[in-house]
């Protein structure tokens, strides 16, 4: 399956960039000029280094979704069908990486779909889309 990964050897958590990854995601994917709405969030630690909130396509959200709005596509990426979603936010609550997100303006939640838009704009080349095996389905 396609998975977005980040290399913190290269990423400096926004200290020397403009969070281009977040901004590009927000503008191109979600059509909003607000990096806080992006499907990945890079946070800098005060004492150096950083942390990324991003979806690794583990599929736990697929398991808990009551309306079958979440399914893997042929690339193994978990996609949300917004017309089927009932806006219960169990996907958000059960995501151990806090990678399922919502904002006040949309009733349906959103997440990273490993589209790679952010990869192209990262000035440090810290982001990549990799191909990894799908994990086994967990009982959640």
């Amino acid at each position: 399956m396609k998975q977005l990964v980040i290399d913190f050897q290269k990423c400096d958590a926004g200290r020397n960039c403009n969070h281009e990854c977040e901004l590009e995601c927000a503008i191109k994917v979600f059509k909003v000029d607000d990096p806080a709405q992006a499907a990945l969030q890079i946070k800098a630690y005060e004492d150096g280094g950083g942390h990324a909130v991003l979806c690794d396509q583990c599929g736990d959200c697929v398991v808990v979704c009551p309306s079958e709005a979440l399914k893997r596509n042929k690339l193994g990426v978990v996609m949300i069908n917004k017309t089927v979603c009932v806006g219960c936010y169990m996907c958000i609550g059960f995501c151990e990486k806090d990678a399922f997100m919502r904002n006040s303006d949309w009733i349906t939640p959103h997440k990273c779909t490993s589209c790679g838009i952010c990869v192209k704009v990262c000035p440090h080349g810290a982001l990549a889309i990799v191909d990894v095996p799908e994990p086994a389905v967990r009982i959640i």
Binding site: C88, Y89, M90, I92, G93, F94, E96, R102, I140
Partner: peptide, 13 residues
């Protein structure tokens, strides 16, 4: 409602 619901879902998890 959204925030209260998500908080509760996390608590269950």
């Amino acid at each position: 409602i959204a925030k209260t619901g998500i908080k509760y879902h996390k608590e269950i998890r």
